[in-house]
């Protein structure tokens, strides 16, 4: 067992543990930041598997996303600090079933898929970044552009919903 595998298992375990912490804490900020650390651990796993660009990108994006999510959770939850010990879970039976089925499906994909032989010749980080750029601006461009357009539409719509109609007239 190489040190790389030991670290990979450690950070994999950390990702799962922080994922569990998300649901064990009552504080919304703790919950959001536990999800952040779970995702950061996944980013470190990318780094360990020598996917430098993807790892750094994952670690960067999640910090901002989860922080913004934290403020939304504080705004919309009744007991954001968790000091009132309020139970904020609901639809437990449905979520248990959905989670269980998702878990089994993920395991099935892992075991049944033909992953092919492991790639032993890993290109260096500069080459990986260049190849990723070619992929994003070539074959996958249409997918990413349409996703970007959808997100932009959602952002405009969300802003329109958030602005109170009378606010425009006051100014």
């Amino acid at each position: 067992m190489t040190p790389q595998m030991i670290f990979l298992m450690f950070f994999g375990g950390a990702a799962v543990w922080f994922g569990i912490v998300v649901f064990r804490t009552l504080s919304m900020v703790r919950s959001a930041l536990a999800l952040l650390f779970s995702q950061t651990a996944v980013g470190v796993m990318f780094l360990l598997m020598q996917a430098e660009f993807l790892g750094v990108l994952q670690i960067m994006m999640m910090a901002t996303e989860m922080s913004v999510m934290a403020i939304f959770m504080v705004m919309f939850m009744m007991d954001p600090g968790g000091m009132g010990a309020m139970d904020m879970t609901h639809q437990k039976r449905l979520s248990l079933w959905a989670g269980g089925i998702g878990f089994v499906a993920a395991l099935a994909v892992i075991w049944l898929a033909d992953w092919g032989p492991a790639n032993l010749q890993i290109p260096d980080a500069t080459e990986q970044t260049a190849e990723l750029g070619r992929e994003l601006l070539g074959r996958s461009m249409f997918i990413f552009e349409s996703a970007a357009l959808m997100i932009l539409t959602a952002m405009v719509a969300a802003t329109m919903v958030a602005i109170h109609p009378s606010e425009g007239r006051k100014r």
Partner: peptide, 27 residues
């Protein structure tokens, strides 16, 4: 690093996380 400029951004993103922690922490 081959991704140095991006890594700089990733490190600086945690400034926000740290300040939210420091702001939320003392109650």
């Amino acid at each position: 690093l081959a991704t140095g400029a991006l890594f700089l951004n990733a490190a600086l993103a945690y400034v926000l996380v740290a300040l939210i922690m420091a702001g939320w922490g003392p109650n």
